[in-house]
Design a binder for these strands. Sequence first.
DNA 1: ACCTGAACACCGTTCAAGT
DNA 2: ACCTGAACACCGTTCAAGT
Lengths: 183, 183
Amino acid sequence: MDAAIACFRKRGFHQATMAEICAEAGISAGALYRYFASKAEIIGAIAEDSRGESDEAFLRAAEEHGIIEAMCLACRGFMQKFADGDGSLIADIFAEAIRDDSVSTPLRATDAQSVKVFTKAMKAAQERGEVDPSLDAEMTVNTLFAALEGIGLRRAFLRDTDPDAALLQFRALAERYLSPRHE
Amino acid sequence: MDAAIACFRKRGFHQATMAEICAEAGISAGALYRYFASKAEIIGAIAEDSRGESDEAFLRAAEEHGIIEAMCLACRGFMQKFADGDGSLIADIFAEAIRDDSVSTPLRATDAQSVKVFTKAMKAAQERGEVDPSLDAEMTVNTLFAALEGIGLRRAFLRDTDPDAALLQFRALAERYLSPRHE
DNA sequence: ACCTGAACACCGTTCAAGT
DNA sequence: ACCTGAACACCGTTCAAGT
């Protein structure tokens, strides 16, 4: 069933119709509503499972190549979605999540989990002297997440979704933001 | 007529109906379509005139209090929109602009104008030694815009739209990002 | 010329009827 | 028990008829 969700990728959340999703999934409208209470709930389900799976991979990368490289890895995966044309879908998810608590609540839980994992890696990097220890680890992670999301959305808006350019942009920001002061 | 546009503020782009907008504006559906070719065009018009007017105020602030303070001023104005509950509307605008060229083209023109103004102020700040001169001024401005937008959206998503907290977050990022290296 | 508003096409959701 | 799909309520857009 979740495979039918791929409809949104092609047409966007508000453009895709329930009829199309039903056709793609090979089920009737009534059956679809047996699995999801509404269209908004479907977008919540999509957003949720496109997140979080990569957390272990991130932790390994953070240990091996440092937190900046690991964040760049996460950045690359995220930017690829914009390059694939999913930018407006991501913006739709934001809009629905901001508007509708029943969409945002499960997403916030997944997000909080990611923040936790990244914060742990951030603290480790601070102890190694890789990152300025005077930074608040959790706020720093939140800020970098926000910057990542902002860069992706803004580049999609400006019609320049080249992931390499986005990566360079993010890396330049992250390096300066995180580097210890005084040399 | 643009006053009727306030409907979106209350209900969001996809939630507000043309009938509501007509009622608020005191005109009929046919008359509304005389001024705007579609609903998407209305959101384009809203987004456009909520931008750009403050550019001169920004330039004055940049000269008087430095670029970081001036950017924080812009940040405050932007964050206030999220605190006012316009977050999902802003996300809708992003989604429509990413999806629809006829929405994004006028917005990109307005945006390019702002980037130009901020870039000029950034270069002046670099000459004053306030900002690291090795940074590319235009990319830096773009990155800070992206971060600003990202912070606003993310905070709205996390249900913490306190403008003061957002400002602190943005300022911490901007100061470290822009400060000259080696002390 | 410009506006009105009924009509049209379409979409998310429901529910009586089937299996 | 579960599914079907016609029906419902609603919304963006149009256009023949009015002024």
